[in-house]
Design a protein around this nucleic acid. Structure first.
Lengths: 118, 118
DNA sequence: ACAACATACAACCAGTTGGTTGTATGTTTG
DNA sequence: CAAACATACAACCAACTGGTTGTATGTTGT
């Protein structure tokens, strides 16, 4: 199985392009064929196809076959998992604040019920 | 001012590298000098310096000078703003679900005051 | 059957990225 | 002051990206 950091690399990379973010928005709103998507952008079909492939490899979208069309759909769970990584970062930051609180609290011999400042 | 999509490009790109994510974690937890950071990775000082520069250009961290050291600090607000972009995507997806609900609701002739399901 | 459509994929190209080394500049410290 | 330290930045390089065109393969509709 691939490392979870590899997964994160792929997801953030996939999101780091406005065309791909736009494609993701569309396919989150509803299924679209690759050629329908391609019609929306001022670039070749093949270029859009490659963007879709990047999103798919990152796990942000899935494709299913229907006759001659490939229908792409956004995976909201994957989007949420990216959000979780960011939340985790925020948690690390909250640790910093907690540590600063500790420093401030040092002179106080009586450990007060923690006051929050965010 | 630079476009908000440019900002998004820069932020997601900055996050799309495990070394940079690790640096961001550290400087969110507390200020670190560039050379302190560099000591943690198996690459040249200059390489780490460039990663820090990418994070700084994306607005995810800030640097301040203290004597000969450059102290880097994570900007939690910037991290949250990336999170907001993802939340916005999720909102688009919720629109899809709402539309599916509408389809199911078609037989109902009376347009009810919208009922939410999340 | 055949033409038009939808996709897939390879080959190619210019620009960017992630790393390197080397050099220059400012800051402490002995 | 001189040596050591911390940073900044330029030049270089291999690998990757985001785009192109061209070709092949399967699917529909007449």
């Amino acid at each position: 199985m691939t490392d979870s950091e590899d997964k994160a690399d792929a997801m953030f990379h996939a999101l780091a392009d406005r065309t791909r973010r736009d494609i993701l928005r569309r396919v989150l709103a509803g299924e679209h064929s690759v050629s329908t998507l391609a019609a929306s952008y001022d670039m070749s079909f093949a270029a859009v196809q490659k963007h879709v492939a990047v999103l798919e490899r990152a796990g942000l979208i899935t494709k299913r076959r229907s006759g001659r069309e490939a229908l792409a759909s956004g995976d909201v769970e994957a989007v949420r998992s990216v959000g979780s990584m960011l939340t985790e970062l925020e948690t690390v930051w909250r640790g910093r604040i907690a540590r600063i609180d500790d420093l401030i609290a040092i002179p106080d011999p009586e450990p007060n019920p923690t006051e929050r400042n965010d």
